[in-house]
């Protein structure tokens, strides 16, 4: 047996391939006689061990969680093709909100010339409940992003925003886990104009309800609602 043949056969023998008994005997015979091939075989053994160890990389922290959100985003986008566009970065920014422990995504962007049906301070007590046709439909046990539009009549340096969920709907937190609390608050400055609050939620029980959002300052309170139907 020549060295080249030994090396090829040796490779096969060490990758679980069937080598017939006579060839195996030849391998051993050559190995006993050839120091160069013994050294080769020992080196390849070491290399294979090192490769196996190096191939066993651990997943980075947060891998599964960020993948989960991206998959949820993808699934949601496919179900709501007409809403494609501005969502990707919203979810990605949400992934980084580990400290908040809740993926409540509030994005305020000025969207002029948009009729939103908001309620101003004088209608604070009024609940605007739309029809099912206007509602955001959430398949039970699935995710959905609910958009709530809020019109602001003047610049507010600091407004306390509050979002309240009805029964049957929960916030989706880090890692795609439901969050127990039904209300979320935070503080933001607000520009004059229309703002969208986007909330990642999961339906837990079929039914119909209203997600209520409020923006409160010392002088004024803006209120708006979004009807959701868990199917």
């Amino acid at each position: 047996m020549k060295c080249n043949e030994f090396r090829q056969l040796w490779e096969q023998a060490h990758c679980g391939m069937d080598i017939d008994a006579s060839k195996r005997a030849e391998l051993e015979e050559h190995s006993a006689a050839c120091e160069s091939c013994r050294s080769y075989a020992a080196d390849i053994d070491d290399i294979k061990k090192a490769l196996a160890a190096a191939g066993d990389a651990e997943l980075p922290d947060g891998f599964a969680e960020s993948l989960h959100l991206r998959l949820a985003e993808d699934a949601w986008e496919r179900r709501n093709v007409q809403d494609r566009g501005a969502w990707s970065w919203i979810f990605r920014s949400a992934i980084g909100m580990a400290a908040a422990a809740v993926v409540l995504v509030a994005v305020f962007s000025v969207l002029p010339d948009r009729d939103t049906g908001l309620a101003g301070s004088e209608t604070a007590a009024q609940e605007l409940v739309g029809t099912d046709a206007d509602a955001t439909h959430i398949p039970a046990d699935r995710f959905a992003v609910v958009k709530i539009t809020l019109d602001v009549e003047q610049v507010e340096d600091e407004a306390q925003i509050e979002v309240n969920l009805p029964e049957g709907v929960v916030f989706v937190g880090e890692g795609g886990n439901p969050v127990a609390q039904k209300s979320m608050q935070w503080t933001e400055p607000l520009e004059k104009g229309s703002h969208e609050i986007k909330v990642l939620v999961q339906g837990t029980r079929p039914g119909r309800g209203v997600i209520k959002a409020r923006a409160m300052t010392e002088k004024v309170e803006y209120v708006t609602n979004a009807t959701v139907v868990v199917d």
Binding site: A54, L59, R78, R142
Partner: peptide
């Protein structure tokens, strides 16, 4: 059909291997 949990159950055992492959 878009069931994320079902997909995650399918790929769960391979997630680390896919990452390690990419790292290679």
């Amino acid at each position: 059909d878009g069931d994320v949990a079902a997909f995650e159950a399918l790929i769960g055992p391979y997630m680390q291997r896919v990452y390690a492959f990419a790292l290679g």
